[in-house]
Simulated scan of single mutants.
Amino acid sequence: MTTILVTGGTGTLGRPLVARLRDQGQDVRVLSRRDPHHPVDLRKGEGLDAALAGVGTVVHCASSPMGGDLEAAGNLLAAARRAGVEHLVYISIVGVDQVPYPYYRVKHQVERLVEDSGLGWTVLRATQFHHLVRSVLRALGRLPVMPLPKGLQDQPVAVEEVAGRLAELALGAPAGRVPDMGGPEVRDLPSLAEAWAAASGKGRRMVGVPLVGRTYRAFRGGGHLAPGGAVGTVTFEAFLAEQGA
């Protein structure tokens, strides 16, 4: 049995992934800044060689919109080569090559680093998690009137379902870029906001606000959607019923 290391193993996606792998009897090592056994900051790289000793597969979930992903990936890939890692699985986002949002561009650059790393690799792109959509709607719902970017759609997916797919990929052979994974429904933003308002008990007047710019046009064009990869089964309403608004 090979040891599987999960970066960001204490995060939103990392936690259910680690649990899924351990439930299947896998030897899993968690790497994060908060883990007591392997408290590694990937942006600095200190302690990576020790953390990767004896590891056969890495699932790279650690990521931050605040920056540092390129440095983190470079350090991780270099250490993985030194350790003789056989397979690196990277979770990316649908639309990183279509939407010129800065965080998406960085994720796309990390994909290229993984592809050119010399390691066996697999890249899965997923649509946004239900958690993120809820967070955005919570923030907008603090105002008496919810301003919703006009004409946008989303296709949120359950993080547990993405974790299940990543576990399958981690236990398989390197597969390159695999089909995108999306939630079960492509929804317009007002319908998602209405679902959140109903679940939270916060009645809000909603106003569509037109925005400008290349990023907004790309989102309006659906560059972040995966209607052909709608393999998730958990709807946004089901997520809110279980997790709360």
Rank of each mutant, 00 (worst) to 15 (best):
H130F: 13
A163Q: 03
V58Q: 08
V89Y: 10
Q98I: 02
V110M: 14
L113G: 06
E168R: 02
A53N: 04
V178W: 03
G120L: 07
F129M: 05
R105Y: 02
M146D: 11
E185Y: 14
N75G: 04
L119A: 11
A158V: 03
L171P: 04
C61D: 13
T122K: 12
V114R: 05
K107F: 06
E46V: 07
A167K: 01
V136A: 05
L152Q: 04
L171D: 06
A126C: 13
P174S: 01
V157Y: 07
A79Y: 08
S64N: 15
V162Y: 06
L152W: 03
A79S: 05
D69P: 13
Q153S: 08
A163M: 05
T127E: 00
V99C: 09
D69N: 15
E46H: 10
P102F: 08
V133W: 11
G54H: 06
A78I: 07
G95E: 03
P65A: 11
G47H: 10
H60G: 02
V89A: 12
V58N: 04
G183Y: 01
E46T: 10
A83F: 11
G172H: 06
E115P: 11
V133D: 00
G141N: 01
E115N: 12
L140S: 05
G56D: 08
A126I: 03
V136R: 06
A62T: 13
P184I: 12
V133M: 15
C61N: 15
P144H: 09
G164H: 08
S135R: 11
L88Y: 14
A83W: 10
Q98L: 10
V123P: 01
P184R: 08
V178R: 07
M146V: 15
P144Q: 05
V96P: 07
E168T: 15
L152V: 04
S135K: 10
G183N: 14
V133Q: 13
L152T: 04
Q155N: 06
A78E: 15
G67Y: 14
E161C: 03
M146F: 15
A83S: 14
D97L: 00
G172F: 10
G68T: 12
K107C: 05
L48K: 05
A78Q: 14
L169G: 07
I93E: 06
M66F: 12
H87F: 07
G120Q: 10
G74I: 08
G54C: 06
P147C: 07
T57W: 07
V123I: 15
P174W: 00
A175H: 01
V94Y: 09
L152K: 02
E161A: 06
L166T: 09
P179N: 04
L77P: 00
S135F: 00
V136E: 03
E161M: 05
G74C: 05
G95A: 05
D154H: 02
A83R: 13
G67D: 12
E86P: 05
V99H: 01
A80G: 01
L113I: 13
G47N: 06
